[in-house]
Amino acid sequence: MNDPISEGKEKMRWEVALPQPAAIDAAQADALPMDAEAFAGFYARSSRPLWAYLARCAGDRALAEDLMQESYVRFLASERLAELSREGEVAARRYLYRIASNLLRDHWRRPRTEPLEDAPEPQDSTGDATEAQMRLNAALAQIKPRDRQLLWLAYAEGYSHQEIAEVMGMMRASVRVLLYRARHAMARLLDNNDRRQA
């Protein structure tokens, strides 16, 4: 017959001897500088712009969703989270974009079976994209992935050269030159697309 008192004693002995997963979780929760509630607020403010960046740069809705999830998980698991919490939301958001940019770059570096040109475009569920947006979207899909990232960060996010350099992991001077070339490439594509339509 089972004795609940001796069972309890046995359990206590084991609990002392071995660290229980729940105890590790609690220790980790204490170590995390951002609690679930604070993260939910940060997520609500940052997820839509991050989604737009990933969807337009990756050109694939499913991939963008995967990368967005992975970006947030890496952000939360980062050793720098405590430091970022002190620096404020702008720094945290920039760091999040940096993680996302690195994930995009890693994805493009991986050997692929499907060429980028054949990758599906993100679908606009709104269905009411203006002519200007469609024109811009078509040109964005044609330029190099890195140029797409640079232009998006500069014009959609309004980041400075310094901020883009931090997000992309580049020198500020390189950003200036590469952005200049990306703008030229974009201008040429817009011009060519307009002529073709006319």
Partner: peptide, 11 residues
């Protein structure tokens, strides 16, 4: 760019 960002963010 901002309009495209806003339109994409809704999805």
């Amino acid at each position: 760019f901002r309009a495209l960002r806003a339109a994409t963010a809704t999805t």
